[in-house]
Design a protein around this nucleic acid. Structure first.
Lengths: 212, 212
DNA sequence: GTGCGATGTATCGGTCCGATACATCGCGGC
DNA sequence: GCCGCGATGTATCGGACCGATACATCGCAC
């Protein structure tokens, strides 16, 4: 998952670790807490060993300048390679079971702008199916095993069930929208609180796979 | 987290691994997928090494009966010890930062029936605070960094923001209810789909810490 | 000039997951 | 009679990711 996200971000521009973490947090903030350096740095090393990213030199201009001032340990800027782009394209197309769990789906969704429509549809439907299954499981527990569970546990299940139903409806809208051919477009979903006066119809945001 | 949940379940009755997993899935189904044996068995071993659980003999009645029929590898039934109960009481009372993340909160909440009211209130408020912070983060991104992000990523953030607002409201209700002195009681929350005609005011479900 | 928060790289131990392996039990179909 | 098959049941291994921790630099306010 982290591999996927890193490759996706570096596709937009080279970055160093700290920056990568911030961007990751901004992009995935809705689905997971800030990602840990204890995952980030080892993963970067793994990607580098696989040849999917490389270290790019900092301060490219005017070499010889300030060569050994306090032996500055410069920031390490990472850059995606051609192999890396290929790898990302492969990861984006293939959808395993982990594509539909909470984190996996979120990460894939966050890169939908780089995903072709057929794949988007496939992922959205797979996710819907998975949530529907979870929903059925919760309904079963609530219906059949209700007397075995205490009031708090039941309340937790109800809240979970509510969230499932809500997500299914959200996915339905996205799927319908996708089939009708256009980007999210944000239907009247309410959102109930964010400032939202201007950016009504966002630019199509099409796949836009820039080819160098 | 798993340690906590296992100790909590074994408090109700002794169980073997498979059963434990099923109960865990039923109780925590709203917040996480089925727990893996790759976590369960090592954790059981760890708890046993710490002296918080013990293996109890299967088939307690009429020994000598069927002693070596095909050398049956019987089910291993686990049972909580006095030290284990003490450990659970300690875990339930102390609330670290991990108590407020999605999984941690869910597990604690699932055992609220065994938690005293002051602790319940503390946990609910801590969780609310944490979700409010996440909500503010999402609002910031949606407000300030909106033009840097594509339409899909923005839609993801909006959905996340909506979920945060919803959860805060849910927590507010629970907190109010808690302060007014009673168990969940399920206010008019809607729930929008579950069958819910009968179990209106569930039995108080008080702390009920059976002392042996 | 000095402390302090943001920036920045890095490691270590530990928790948990997914895949895999293997054995038994009960039941329905042939 | 027996055969497969799904549920029951225990167990390990490699890998992903996290939280704590350590350490160094930079710019700015006091």
């Amino acid at each position: 998952m982290l591999e996927f996200a890193i490759l996706g971000l570096l596709q937009e521009s080279p970055m160093h670790g700290y920056e990568l973490r911030k961007e990751l947090t901004a992009k995935l903030g809705a689905i997971r807490a800030a990602i840990s350096y204890g995952s980030l740095y080892p993963t970067l090393r793994r990607l580098q060993a696989a040849g999917w990213i490389t270290e790019a030199a900092e301060t490219p201009a005017t070499a010889e300048e300030v060569p050994a001032l306090t032996s500055r340990r410069g920031r390490v800027v990472y850059k995606i390679t051609a192999d890396g782009k290929e790898r990302f394209a492969q990861l984006i197309a293939q959808a395993g079971p982990e594509t539909y769990d909470d984190t996996g789906f979120g990460v894939h969704f966050a890169f939908f702008a780089r995903t072709d429509q057929a794949t988007r549809l496939r992922i959205l439907e797979g996710r819907r199916r998975k949530i529907e299954e979870r929903r059925e499981g919760l309904r079963d527990v609530l219906g059949r095993a209700a007397e075995r569970l205490d009031a708090y546990t039941l309340e937790l299940q109800r809240h979970g069930l509510d969230a499932c139903e809500r997500e299914v409806r959200w996915l339905e809208e996205l799927i319908a929208n996708e089939r009708s051919g256009r980007a999210p477009t944000v239907p009247q979903t309410g959102t109930a609180g964010g400032r939202r006066e201007d950016n009504s119809p966002p630019p199509p945001g099409e796949t836009r796979n820039e080819r160098p």
